[in-house]
Design a protein around this nucleic acid. Structure first.
Length: 270
DNA sequence: AGACGATGCGGAC
DNA sequence: TCCGCCTCGTCTT
């Protein structure tokens, strides 16, 4: 489920294995053609929002975006691949392993972008998964980029405002703050927006370890998600059935508790 | 066996 | 405001 945490986990996995390593071979398959890229070493692997960059020592980088269906796998040389080779978008061979990206939505070879140009080129707001985030910057971008009548779910998913939030965190963060997904951003104050993004950032960062994505940690409770994919089940706070609707520009699945998440109430605290 | 919908998002109208 | 990419698990027949 590639949201920002997934991409950063992948980068964290690849980094110690690839950074600075001599490159055996690198093959890209961008839909039509397959091509081999020659470089001596991999310089660095880095994530920016939901994009993954593999920088080479020849001034070029491979940029990949997993979209909905992409994934990375490691296969020791000689081991049978568990996915068809024809679906491979990137095959990086280093040492005794192939590192393979399957079913990427986008793969391209570009001149190595600086952090700044990676952000500009792909219109990315501050990376919420990367650690400390300047929430003032994020809020400024909300007002610069979003019309007041934009629904909060669309604002949260807008990677230009801040990058990393996907559809799961979108619903979870709104629940945590008791805010209805039907609320328009124009009805929100800076403080609420900062709270939403602060939570998103905390949750994304908290899910960089192993195991399943968890947004619900309270004491001993072994909960996982508050509302996502829980349509019709009792709200974990108030027992009211969780609602589901496809909302926003892309009609994305949205889950919320109609009792806890009141569109008229101004909620500033989780 | 086949339909449906899902993590994302650009583009056509 | 819709369509479609594209794979895969789950649900329906």
């Amino acid at each position: 489920m590639p949201e920002g945490d997934t991409i950063h986990k992948i980068a964290n996995y690849l980094k110690p294995r690839l950074d600075g390593q001599p490159l055996e071979s690198l093959v890209l398959a961008d839909r039509s053609a397959e091509r081999t890229v020659s470089a001596n070493r991999i310089q660095a692997v880095r994530a920016a929002g939901k994009h993954l960059f593999v920088d080479l020592d020849n001034g070029l980088s491979v940029r990949s975006h997993l979209g909905m269906h992409g994934s990375w796998h490691r296969y020791p040389l000689g081991e049978t691949w568990r996915k068809p080779r024809s679906r491979a978008s990137v095959v990086i061979t280093v040492g005794a392993n192939h590192y393979v990206c399957f079913n990427a939505k986008e793969v391209e070879l570009i001149r190595t972008p600086s952090v700044r140009s990676a952000v500009v080129d792909h219109r990315l707001g501050p990376d919420l998964t990367a650690g400390a985030v300047d929430l003032d910057v994020v809020v400024r971008r909300v007002w610069e980029l979003c019309e007041p009548d934009t629904l909060l779910p669309d604002v949260l998913l807008d990677q230009r405002v801040a990058s990393g939030i996907g559809n799961v965190y979108k619903s979870e963060v709104l629940f945590i703050h008791g805010v209805s997904p039907k609320r328009e951003v124009g009805q929100c104050g800076d403080t609420l927006l900062k709270s939403l993004y602060a939570s998103a950032s905390e949750l994304l960062s908290a899910n960089l370890g192993g195991g399943r994505r968890v947004t619900r940690r309270e004491g001993d409770s072994a909960g996982r998600l508050w509302v996502y994919r829980r349509e019709g089940l009792p709200c974990l706070r108030c027992d009211h059935p969780i609602a589901y609707a496809r909302l926003g520009r892309h009609h994305r699945s949205t889950y919320w508790c109609p009792a806890c998440q009141d569109s008229s109430q101004i909620s500033e605290n989780p």
